[in-house]
Design a protein around this nucleic acid. Structure first.
Lengths: 136, 136
DNA sequence: GTGTAAATGAGAAAGGTTTTCATTTATATT
DNA sequence: AATATAAATGAAAACCTTTCTCATTTACAC
């Protein structure tokens, strides 16, 4: 009953929105670009325009249903929002993305923001590297 | 004698390169986009193409003379390399950028990368917030 | 001074994302 | 259940930052 999620978010229940949600929920990869979602829709037989995919993802972000990662060099990727804040490790070879949570870092960030007189609104931490599989 | 910096970096000493270096060294703002540099050059009376500014900044980055920050939502900004690794605090109102160094966070990042089996190549941490001046 | 490889300028092209606008659709209302 | 209305969609154009192409100019080695 994903329709409820959409209604709760104040969005009309439309086929493109339901299908995009479905893709995000069932995809093998948790992190997908707009293009990835678009292609997955095509494979599913749904002819939904790329512009609509972008619009829907942006609305979902606004509604708190997904988060947007702005990774270095290029396109954004989206992940279903699961309520947990986490940061990311990205493999520069295979583009795989892993997540991690580190309370020590979180705490230090709060301290630093306070020290500098900043009212923190957000923060993003990306660790780039070569994952275990790609080191061979 | 900035010419030496260029020669040391294996770059020919050309007027565009000297002028871009000059802008970066004398600018009131330490963090500048390619467009910022381009405009500063125009104000200085130097007719240097935007493509050249991009090329020069990219070469400077390769030569270790400047660092490129990939901040959220759009264009890259460049800063003169001063040898110190540091992270950034960005004001979402006035776009001012502050720098900070935190050895605890650095250390935790190394630990996390190791735990996940990543050979870390780079990392980027941005704290977004409202700076002291903009909170009034 | 001259030759040669490298650098530049202008504009075109690229790549990801957003906008426009006419058409379609979901939902509130009758 | 039919209808009105505001919102959503598709397709293509526009956008924006950045890179590339290619003819011309320039720096540096000889």
């Amino acid at each position: 009953m994903e329709s409820q999620d959409l209604r709760k978010a104040g969005l009309k229940v439309t086929l493109p929105r339901l299908k995009v949600l479905e893709i995000l929920e069932s995809a093998q990869q948790r992190h997908m670009s707009a293009e990835d979602v678009y292609k997955a829709l095509l494979e599913m037989g749904e002819e939904i325009g790329l512009a609509t995919v972008y619009r829907v993802l942006t609305q979902f972000e606004g509604a708190g249903l997904v988060s947007r990662l702005s990774i270095e060099g290029g396109h954004a990727v989206f992940e279903l929002e699961d309520g947990t804040h986490h940061d990311h490790l990205l493999c520069v070879r295979c583009n795989q993305i892993e997540e991690f949570i580190d309370e020590v870092i979180e705490q230090r960030q709060r301290v630093i923001a306070a020290e500098k007189g900043f009212q923190m609104t957000d923060h993003s931490l990306y660790i780039y590297g070569i994952c275990r599989n790609c080191q061979s």
